[in-house]
Design a protein around this nucleic acid. Sequence first.
DNA 1: TGTTAGATCGCCT
DNA 2: GGCGATCTAACAT
Length: 195
Amino acid sequence: MPTPDHLRAVDIDFSMDSCDVARRLIGVTLLVNGIGGRIVETEAYDQQDPASHTYTGPSVRNAAMFGPPAHVYVYRSYGLHWCMNLVCREAGHGAGVLLRALEPTHGLEAMCERRGLQDPRLLCAGPGRLAQALGVDHSWNHRPVQPPTFALLWNGQAADVLAGSRIGISKAVETPWRFGERGSRYLSRGFGRGA
DNA sequence: TGTTAGATCGCCT
DNA sequence: GGCGATCTAACAT
């Protein structure tokens, strides 16, 4: 399946703050081995942030988050799901962006098979679902986000980005570091007003 | 259409 | 020993 002409490789500066990267990624197409879609929902985490895995400093689990930017941090959630983050800032900062939802555009058949579903709205709506659909698990931890495995593409149009409270956390609940595309049908949850 | 409980395990306290 | 950056199925309404 060839890449549509209007999509071009985009250079995301992962040394920026995780909030900036999280916002910038909305509307960008992420492909893993040619499979994926448009990123419609992200969350930012930082070491200064009580809700972050890195808040209490480096550990075996979160080591990737303290490594160089533009790498993958994968962790197991609730004992059974895998969730994928992209590391931000310089090494040592413990900052990253959690990928929460995609609008599936490439490799629908493969994602349906991995997820055991047909409904495109349920393929990548949520971090655990997204990782499963892309075939990402713990063996992907520490991998660099670069071609040919990873592709970040953009159609040149700025997305209409909403910000809101993050999901599934008990600390720093009020910090509006969740970002999503306004009106997208592929969000894991709505943004209250506007979406 | 909304709410609730169960599954399941690596890491931190 | 307890607790999640979650998902799903099974209820109730």
